[in-house]
Structures are given as structure tokens and as C-alpha cells.
Amino acid sequence: MSFLNSISQATAAQQTTSSGNPFLDGVRLQTNAAVPEAKKQELTQEDFFALLSQQLSMQDPFKPVENDQMIAQMASFSTVDGIAKLNDHILNLNTVMTSSQALQASGLVGQKVLIPSATGNVSKEEPNIKGVISTPTKIDQITVRIEDAKGQLVKSFTVDGSEGGNIDVNWDGLDAEGKPVAEGNYTIKASGKVDGKAQELPVSTYAHVTSVSLGTAATGAILNLRGVGGIKLTDVLAVAEG
């Protein structure tokens, strides 16, 4: 069949389907038009080799592409493809590690953990607050101040710091008059003389683990602490008996 005959048959077919009304013919053409399927906006390895074959077929035979250029193109695509697959494997590995970490952290539910925070919680279940004062050197006497959420002084007392290092501190939850304080968060502050000068000392407190959250790949497992909030498992300093 010749090219002119094909055009004639196509024209005749269009005329047989024409209704004589331009508007109806326009609507009919729109309804019969096929909607192209959506394609992915990324190149696959098959697309790359198709483009490479097209490039080779259209190159100047007197100025062909150098072998090193072709190898460089193929190596670049292989590198990008390998990096993409590596990223997928890393994401899967992070998911598995996060789940495994959360499973291990679930064993801490009901235990007490030492956290780098001077704020502890007083409740019916835990009417006292325990913590650790870190000292850079031996201090004869350490002054401890207990403050409420508003920063008001509740009670003060001293502890022996002559051994130096980490000094245990335990507040019984009673105010200066010996009465139990209201439930809530309280802050332990400590100070002492280092080389003859008064210095604030870092304090860490124990908190009760009530539950564990899965978290994300960036944060890892999250420990939910009674009255204090959440903390990353990696920030825990020590674990004590519940």
C-alpha cells in the first residue's frame, strides 16, 4: 500500500464518522482520544542503554565517541544506581536497628535510669528524688538546694563531698518544716568551694521508666519517664533497680 493510499483511507474514515456538526465532531474526537499513561520521572538502566544505543547510532562515523568517554558514562550511571540501592539498604538497616533498639529498651520499663537533668518528679509512687552530684575534686561540704517549678526554695541541706567524684544525694520529699511537698517537678541544685571559690556543680537525677516509644532512625528508642517526659535511650547515664 502506498503512502498516498494510506492518507486517502484515513481521510475517508474520518469523513464516515463525521456528523456534519463541528461541535459534535469535536466532542466525539475528545471522547475517543486515548489518555496517555503516566510515566515515572526517573531513568532506569534500560532507559540509559536505550539512550546510549541512540547516541551510538547517530554519531558521526568519522568522529566516533572515544572508548574512555563511553566507559566514563557507563561508570557514572552504575555509580549513581549503586548509590541509590545503597541508600535503600541503609534505610532498611536503620529501620531494623530502631526496632531492635526499642525491643531492648522495653526491658527498662519499671526501672530507674539516671538522666543528665537536675529536675526530678515527686509523686505518690515516688515521694522522694535521688540523684548524683558530680564534683571535679574533693569538697568538704556541698550545699544542696531544692527548688519548685517556680524557682522558689523549698529546702536546703548539706552533703559530704570529701570523697570527690560522683556523690549520691537523696531528698526525702519534705520541705523545711518537715511536711511532704505537693506532687510535681522539683530541681536539685548543688554548690561547693573549688579552689576556694564557690562553684555550681552538675546534678543528674533518677527517673522511673513508664514506657518506651519506637522513635525514628535519627533519635532511636525513646524512654518515657514519669512526670519528666521523654529522653533518648542513648542519653541514659546509668540504670538502677526499680
Rank of each mutant, 00 (worst) to 15 (best):
T135R: 12
V144M: 14
V35M: 11
N87S: 14
G227I: 10
L214C: 09
P180G: 02
Q54A: 12
N185E: 07
K150L: 07
K138V: 05
M58Q: 00
L86M: 07
N185T: 04
D160C: 06
D68A: 10
S53Y: 01
D60I: 02
N121R: 07
K179E: 08
D88W: 03
D148H: 09
K85S: 05
N224Y: 09
S57R: 11
V132S: 02
V122W: 03
Q104Y: 04
S2K: 03
A238P: 06
T234N: 11
Q101E: 05
Q69R: 15
N94I: 13
A34M: 13
Q55G: 08
N121F: 06
A240E: 05
Q73M: 12
F49G: 05
V113M: 00
K179L: 09
S78I: 14
I7F: 08
E66S: 12
G192E: 10
Q41F: 14
K193W: 04
T135S: 12
V109P: 08
D140G: 11
M97W: 00
N5M: 04
F23W: 08
T137Q: 10
G230D: 09
E183R: 09
A238Q: 10
V209A: 02
G173E: 07
F49K: 09
N21H: 06
V80D: 05
A33I: 04
Q45K: 15
V27P: 10
V122Y: 08
K85F: 06
E46K: 13
S6I: 15
V239N: 01
L93D: 14
V236E: 01
F48M: 11
L201N: 07
I7P: 04
S57M: 06
V194S: 00
A240S: 08
K193M: 02
Q69A: 14
G107R: 05
P202K: 04
I188G: 04
A50L: 13
I7H: 04
K150Q: 10
Q69P: 14
G82S: 06
R145K: 15
G196M: 10
E177N: 11
E126T: 11
S18F: 15
F49Y: 14
A10Q: 15
L174C: 03
L233C: 08
S117Y: 00
N224C: 06
F3M: 07
E125R: 14
M1W: 00
L114I: 07
Q9L: 10
S53W: 02
D175F: 14
E200N: 13
I146A: 03
L174P: 09
A50Q: 13
P180L: 01
D195F: 09
F77Q: 06
Q73A: 13
V96L: 09
G192Q: 02
L153W: 05
R145W: 04
R28E: 12
K150D: 05
L51C: 05
E126F: 11
K138E: 13
V65S: 10
N92I: 11
G173D: 05
L51H: 11
G165A: 03
S211F: 01
F48L: 06
S18Y: 13
N185K: 13
P64W: 12
